[in-house]
Simulated assay, not measured.
Amino acid sequence: MTGPAATGSGGLLAALGMFTVLPVPASARVPGPGVLRWLPLVGALLGVLASVPALAVWRGGERGTPLLAAALVIGTLALLTRGLHLDGAADLADGLGSGRPAEQALAIMRRPEVGAFAVVALVGTLLVQVAALSAVLAAGTAAEGVLAVVLTTVSGRVAVLHAAARPAAAGSSLGVLVAGAGSPTVRATATAVALAGAAAAGLAVDGARGGLWWAAGVLLALGAAALVTRHAAHRLGGVNGDVFGAVVETGTTVALVVLAASDAWA
């Protein structure tokens, strides 16, 4: 695929149009292999934007209500992404939870109905994310809170680059467009930048200890997402959009939990 939607700033616009509710020109809403490399940057932007409503009720540490602030951040992320990744996580939970063969599991994932596994996955994910982020916000300044949100939103999306290296599942239009499109260089660069950024942010927040914990948050997020990807690809015969959504939510959640744990073990 060539043209503005696949390369340069057009690739970023296509990624914004595909993965967020942010307004972009209709001509830029053309998904293709090049769109995936912009996901980490999209995640960083989403993290910053999602943090804005929280600042109305929380000003750092215990100044305000960190629990409400965390709920506003997670809710805003869902709104900014149209709930796309949460929907994918729910569908994957229903498909894998069914215990059916790949073809039947994929058919279940395509249904509009929400099953018990999806409900459990959604409720559990949102509860853990809000609780973990609340603990992180209560322990830091406003700037540190925004950095933490950005770290977690980026981590989940870097994980998608790794997931996309696997073949697409049968019948997946999104998978055909982006799975396997990211080069090893793109994946390695995105991972290195995420790790370096996390270490630098953690270093600024809490010295060497913070640098280690924040970098560990990225590594563990990628590791957990890789396990989800491997299991889903094994069960479904490949990856699809629902797998990507589950990978985003898994990476985000694990990164938040690690950051919350760093305060508990201070």
Rank of each mutant, 00 (worst) to 15 (best):
169 A>F: 04
31 P>S: 04
7 T>Q: 09
38 W>Y: 08
12 L>K: 00
3 G>F: 13
120 V>T: 10
256 L>C: 10
197 G>C: 13
111 R>C: 09
76 T>D: 05
158 V>A: 01
45 L>D: 11
67 L>F: 12
66 P>A: 06
80 L>G: 02
86 L>H: 14
86 L>S: 07
34 G>I: 03
14 A>W: 02
109 M>K: 12
202 G>F: 07
35 V>A: 13
170 A>P: 03
31 P>M: 06
197 G>Q: 11
234 H>T: 15
96 L>F: 14
7 T>K: 14
95 G>Q: 07
120 V>N: 09
137 L>N: 04
7 T>H: 15
47 G>F: 13
177 L>Y: 06
112 P>V: 14
57 V>P: 02
203 L>A: 15
43 G>E: 00
86 L>R: 04
128 V>W: 09
120 V>E: 12
167 P>W: 11
185 T>V: 15
79 L>I: 13
250 T>W: 00
116 A>E: 02
230 R>T: 15
225 A>T: 03
17 G>S: 02
38 W>L: 06
39 L>N: 05
231 H>G: 01
249 E>P: 12
209 R>K: 03
246 A>W: 12
94 D>K: 06
22 L>T: 03
190 A>T: 14
148 A>C: 00
89 A>K: 00
175 G>I: 08
72 L>R: 10
204 A>I: 04
174 L>N: 13
194 A>N: 12
179 A>H: 05
135 A>E: 08
258 V>M: 09
95 G>F: 03
172 S>H: 06
245 G>Y: 09
151 L>G: 09
89 A>L: 15
86 L>W: 12
211 G>P: 09
132 A>E: 13
80 L>N: 01
63 R>G: 01
7 T>Y: 04
126 L>E: 10
27 S>T: 08
82 R>W: 10
162 H>L: 14
21 V>F: 01
163 A>N: 07
48 V>Y: 11
120 V>H: 02
30 V>E: 12
94 D>L: 06
191 T>I: 07
109 M>F: 10
200 A>S: 13
193 V>C: 03
193 V>A: 15
103 E>F: 04
238 G>Q: 06
247 V>L: 13
126 L>P: 04
131 A>E: 07
255 A>K: 10
92 L>I: 11
255 A>D: 00
43 G>M: 05
81 T>D: 03
176 V>K: 14
165 A>G: 15
121 A>R: 11
31 P>L: 09
259 L>S: 02
73 V>S: 08
150 V>I: 11
230 R>W: 12
215 A>V: 03
208 A>T: 12
238 G>W: 12
58 W>E: 10
213 W>M: 05
116 A>N: 02
232 A>S: 15
57 V>H: 09
205 V>D: 06
154 V>W: 02
239 V>G: 11
193 V>N: 06
133 L>G: 05
45 L>I: 14
219 L>C: 04
133 L>P: 13
68 L>Y: 05
101 P>F: 08
65 T>D: 14
102 A>E: 07
